[in-house]
Structure formats: structure tokens, C-alpha cells
């Protein structure tokens, strides 16, 4: 993919930041408003997809390399398991125990504040990271395999 016209390139270089920020907002406020880790992650990934469409695959690969995004993908999943595991060694000790809420927030009126609900915002961040990185990888792979119907070499390198 070579990228599109200068109009598309200019507009998308303005819009990408807003989309990215909106994704972060959806992730962070996931426990208060509609949305959450998955929806926010998809929006974050879509800002990269916009770049991929406007500027071409090579440009995006320079920005966010495949190794980095696949590491981010794993880190997101590891974070989620780690949050669940910390509950196992904390206070009342149970897998997925909401230790922050029970320990610090239960007796304060934190409803509808950003810092509330204990581990749930943390889980949302982990899921957002995981979904954003993996969806980016999925679309990247699709764009590679799209060429693969014509020449068989490039997809083998990705595997």
C-alpha cells in the first residue's frame, strides 16, 4: 500500500490524535460510562488503522513495530492475570478478589468518581492494551495477506 492523496493524509494526521485520545477516554471511564477496555482498545487500534490506510503499511510499521506491538499484546494479558493473582495474596486471599475496593475504597463514598470500583479500571486498562495491540496486529496481518494472494513470499516472513 502506498497511501492516499495529500488531502486524506493531512486530515488523518489531525484526526488520529483525537481518535487515540477518545480511545483512552473510553478505556479510563469504562467503569462509569458505556464502553470499557474492549471498546476503547478497538478505538485505539482504529487510529492506527486510519494511519495505515492513509499513509501505507510501511509508515505504520516504522511507528509501531510488529515486535513491540506483539509484546504490548502479551503485556496486556499478563497485566490482567497479574491483577487477578495479586488478589490471591492480599487480605482475604481469593483469585480475582477486588482487593483495592475492599481494602481502601469500601467505606468512602466514591460512587461515580474516576477512582472507584477497585480493580475494575485497572482490568479495563489491561484489556484496552491487549485488544488495541492485538486488533492492530490482526489488521496488519490482513493487509499483508491481502498481497499474499498475488505473491506468496511476504506472508511466510511474518509467520
Amino acid at each position: 500500500m502506498k497511501g492516499m492523496t495529500i488531502i486524506v493524509k493531512t486530515i488523518s494526521s489531525w484526526v488520529k490524535l483525537l481518535i487515540f485520545l477518545f480511545g483512552i477516554y473510553i478505556v479510563l471511564f469504562g467503569h462509569l460510562t458505556p464502553g470499557g477496555g474492549f471498546a476503547g482498545g478497538v478505538i485505539i487500534a482504529s487510529s492506527y488503522v486510519l494511519l495505515m490506510l492513509a499513509f501505507g503499511r510501511e509508515f505504520v510499521e516504522k511507528n509501531l513495530s510488529l515486535t513491540a506491538s506483539s509484546r504490548l499484546d502479551c503485556v496486556g494479558a499478563l497485566m490482567f492475570v497479574a491483577i487477578a493473582l495479586v488478589g490471591m495474596f492480599y487480605g482475604a486471599a481469593s483469585f480475582f478478589w477486588n482487593f483495592i475496593h475492599q481494602q481502601y475504597l469500601a467505606d468512602r463514598a466514591t460512587e461515580f468518581k474516576l477512582v472507584s470500583a477497585g480493580i475494575i479500571p485497572l482490568c479495563n486498562i489491561a484489556i484496552g492494551l491487549k485488544v488495541g495491540a492485538s486488533l492492530f496486529l490482526v489488521i496488519f496481518a490482513l493487509s499483508v495477506f491481502c498481497n499474499d494472494f498475488r505473491c506468496k513470499g511476504s506472508a511466510r516472513e511474518l509467520m
Binding site: R71, C74, V75, A77, A84
Partner: peptide, 24 residues
Amino acid sequence: PLVLPAFVCIPLVAAFLLPILGSF
């Protein structure tokens, strides 16, 4: 009772840790 989630946790942690290690 601690052991039961570990049957799922250990392979799950391994599944996401190994690709990170493997990329080095």
C-alpha cells in the same frame, strides 16, 4: 483451595510470558 485457580493461572501466565521472552 489456593491450588485450583493455579491450574488455569500457571499455563495462562506462561502463555503470555513465553512470546515476550522468545522475542529476545
